[in-house]
Design a protein around this nucleic acid. Structure first.
Lengths: 101, 101
DNA sequence: CAAATATATGAACATATTTTCATGTAAAAA
DNA sequence: TTTTTACATGAAAATATGTTCATATATTTG
């Protein structure tokens, strides 16, 4: 009886890495919003999400760094958009789960 | 121009919560293994995953607590199985993502 | 019953993540 | 050209998570 893992250590680490950068209410909300609106400025996101500017900035920059978001400067504004659109699927995927809390 | 979030704070928090408990290489590996094998004992998981017993136990109990796993004692062994099978989808879902690292 | 095996537990420690706050920079407006 | 607006940055503080280690408990075996 031989049991082997079929997912490599690298794949597991990459998957965990992506999941971790998504696993936060604010960041999920950003992803969700950007799945409906092509792009949004930091300010717009700030007010919709009711999140402090600096904190949101940290989140956005982090998500960009990790390949999930894109940013594009236009005048004073910086518009963020989804780079990795597949992450949106994670949301609908998780909505079916019925885990305890 | 009115922008609203369509996901409630509760939904976002629940989703982030589940994603967080999944977002770890070892825990992902457990989920993956249990998607192929109905159930596995702590010992089996330990050796396949090459993970220290106590550490794995902590992970398993945590996942059980959070509604992802089930456990069932049989003699000296404790068999863990997937309770929330939908989480398996997260793995294939994430495998398509192409984020930077 | 003593020893061995399988698992759990909890505290201490290490590390990582999140949040806050004060301040910096660049563009636009007054 | 000062002020305002939008955003970024970085360090400190707060919090959460992961890991280790020593030990406990239950079950089985000799």
């Amino acid at each position: 009886m031989e049991i082997v893992q079929h997912l490599s250590k690298e794949k597991l680490e990459k998957a965990a890495f992506i999941l971790k950068t998504v696993a936060h209410p604010t960041r999920l909300a950003v992803i969700d919003l950007l799945s409906y609106r092509e792009k949004m400025s930091v300010n717009e996101l700030c007010s919709v999400l009711d999140c402090e500017q600096s904190l949101l900035s940290h989140h956005l920059i982090n998500m960009k760094l990790k390949g999930i978001l894109n940013s594009q400067k236009d005048g004073q504004n910086v518009y963020y958009s989804l780079k990795e659109k597949d992450v949106v699927k994670l949301i609908s995927c998780i909505e079916n789960c019925d885990c305890n809390m």
